[in-house]
Structures are given as C-alpha cells and as structure tokens.
Design a protein around this nucleic acid. Structure first.
Lengths: 205, 205
DNA sequence: TTATATACAATCATCCATGTATGTAAGAAG
DNA sequence: CTTCTTACATACATGGATGATTGTATATAA
C-alpha cells in the first residue's frame, strides 16, 4: 500500500482539506482525529504520520492561508510603487474582501481562527504570532501613510502611526463582523462602502 | 450541610468566579467541571445543581457581564440628552475602555468570548445573539448620528447608517486588539487616542 | 537484487470527562 | 414537631479520544 511521494503529498492535502471542513463544522476541540481521518478517506494512522498532533494540523491549515495573504499584502502595500499611497491601502483592504468572497478555503480558515478556536495551551503561542504579524502590518501601513503625508495626500494633522493603528483596527473589526454576519446582513453589504469611507476619511479633503 | 438561600447564592457566585478563572486559564473546552468545582471549593454535584451543564455556566458568566454593559451603553447613548450627540459616542467608547481597564471580570469574560471559546454546537446559537446585539447597538448609534446630523455637528455627506457601521467596526476591532495586546503594546497605549480620532473624524471640521 | 525507509492500516491499553443516580444533613413550611 | 424540600456530596456507569505499538506492502536507493 506504500504510495509514491506525490501521492503522499496528495493525501496530506486531503487530510488538511478534511480537517478544515471538520473544524469549520464542529470546531477544533470537538473534532476528533478519527473524524478527520474518515472525512479524508484514511485512518488515524495516516493523520499521525503526516502531523504530530492536532495542533500541528491546525497550524498547517492556518499557515496555508495566512502566508499567501501576508505576502500579497506586502506586495500590494509596498511594492506597487506606481499607485499612489492611499489608493494602495484601499487596494489592499478591498483585495482582502475579494479574497474572502472568492476563496472558501480562506473564508473557512479565518472563520475557524476567529470563532472556532480556543487560544490556550498549545495554541496560546499563536497569539504571539498574531501580535507580530499585526505589528508588521502596522509598520507597513505606517510607511505607506508616511509616504502619503510626504506627497500631501494625507489629511493634515494626522499622524501616520495613528492612521496605521486606525486602519489595523478597522481591518480586524471588519473581518470579524464580515465573518459573523451572513450575506444579506449589514456589514457585508456595506463592506465596500466602509472601505471607501475609511480611506476617504484619511485623505486630505 | 444544607445551606441557607443566601449561602447557596454565594456558592453559585463562587462557582461562576472559579469557572471564569478556569476558562480564562485553560479555555472552555479544556476545563473540566471537576476543575471548576475544585477551584470553587465544592464538588461537581454542586456545579450540576446550579447549572444544567457547562454551556449554561458559560452563558451565565457571559450574561453577567454583557447585560450591564449593554444597559450602560443604552443609557449613555440614548438617555444622556444633555450631552451633545458625538460627545455621547465618545463617552460611550471611552467608557467601554474604562470598564475594560478597571474590571478584571469584564476583561476576562470578554477575553474568553474573544479568544477562548468555540462557537459551535451548543454555543453556535450565541453568535445569533451577538448579531442581534450588534444590530441593536448599530441602531442606537444610527439614531445618535442622525441627531448629530440634525444639529449640524456630523461631517457633511456622511450617512448616519454608514457612520454607525464604521463605529461598530471600530469598537469590535479595538476590543479585539486591546484584548490581544499587553499593556505596553501599541493598540492599548493608543486606545484613547484612537477613540478621540475616530469621533473627531466623524465631526464636521 | 536486496535492504531499508516510507506511508500508511489496525489494534490496544489507558485515561478521563460526562451525566446520572443515590445518599444525606439541614433549612423551611405547616 | 414532622415533613418536605433544598443544597449539596459521593459513587457509578459509560463512552469516547488519545497516543503508542505493531503490522505490512511497496518505493526507492545502493
């Protein structure tokens, strides 16, 4: 029954996909590795082969979504030099919404991270990771807002540090409400409007 | 060993306090009712006497903090008619921060609700409760912003609905980051500044 | 070709949390 | 004063979930 490396990698992905769905449906704590295995069409042996334990499986799923998301944000915020600073921030926020709407995997993963995970014990360290990533994003935003101030598009009297903190708060809050509410609800329908208003509020009028 | 009614109420509070600390330390899923009982100085029998099961205990703890918080917000936002509208919103947001800083019980409870709870199975219904409360708060805010527009203090061209949604997003994001970061970190130190900036951004300049 | 590492499946022992059922001493009602 | 009810403690039965161990067939390397 021994598989080739590509097949092994494929079952690894199958397990991750199955786990994603199980975690999303029943939460992390209440899903058994047996359920994950069954959903993936394998046995617990396979799960334990690819992942040391449940928390490592969770981490793999999270990184699978978080890392591309972060890379993309860096790219948009810092590398897109031809677009003006505040527009890059709008692009970034709006792109985030687009990924949420388009990619169910990202949506489910972020939903698990937001509403179906207890950051305690093994997972407590992940909060520190979040803090670092927030700091990094905040630093990026600060840099972009500083650019905006230089070219005169930032609202006068607004500190780039404060503006960056505001945008981080906005993103975190928007994400949490977006995930909480259904398609027809308030925040989701207004999401684009909210992004526009947020960026406009920081622009010199 | 039978206790008087006041003593019984006291052990009920003891159990809730113990559970609060256990949930905060180990998360909801990983704390045993045995641990809660031990921390409260009783046995599981007492816990099961006062609460049907773990989720009811969680709900009791949450309502113990949420309801006063909501009542207070209603009071500040709607009843304080002598204060001007936008100032009431600032008072509300700033008061929220004050409670967070002052009251460890509120802090721990909100921390559990944010980072140490999986909203799944029994708890899935609580998300609906959150949605309703958000809607209610948003309605309150909308009303206050509408007042502000009437008396000319709202920034021109800003829809009260949109402003209310922005403030809700701001509050949710601020709370989440405030809880995530330690005392010395960015968001906490800037929290007051952020509140001021948020309200100022909505005021006619 | 042979040997070894790989990629799982199957089985097992253990522990632990839950819920319930029963016991019981002491307040409260009459 | 007794009876009933309250407010727990104790004990029990049950059902998983975990992690480790063992088994095994096949890639793959030498």
């Amino acid at each position: 029954m021994r598989r080739t490396k590509e097949e092994a990698e494929q079952t690894r992905r199958q397990i991750m996909t199955a786990a994603l769905n199980c975690f999303h449906a029943r939460g992390i704590a209440r899903t058994t590795l047996e359920q994950v295995a069954a959903a993936a069409g394998v046995t617990r042996g396979a799960v334990y082969w690819h992942f040391a334990d449940k928390s490592e499986l969770v981490r793999a799923i999270r990184e699978d979504v978080s890392l591309p998301l972060l890379d993309h944000s860096d790219l948009v915020l810092l590398r897109e030099n031809k677009v003006e600073p505040l527009e890059r921030i709008k692009l970034f926020l709006s792109g985030f919404l687009s990924v949420l709407e388009r990619d169910p995997r990202t949506r489910k993963t972020l939903d698990i991270m937001s509403y179906k995970c207890e950051y305690v014990g093994d997972m407590a360290g992940d909060l520190q990771t979040f803090r670092k990533r927030h700091d990094r994003l905040r630093a990026c935003l600060t840099q972009v807002y500083a650019e905006a101030r230089k070219d005169g598009s930032l609202r006068s009297g607004l500190d780039p540090d404060l503006a960056a903190a505001e945008t981080l708060v906005f993103l975190v809050g928007l994400l949490r409400l977006w995930l909480l509410e259904g398609h027809a609800q308030g925040t989701r329908k207004m999401a684009r409007q909210l992004v526009d208003a947020h960026v406009m509020g920081r622009r010199k009028s």
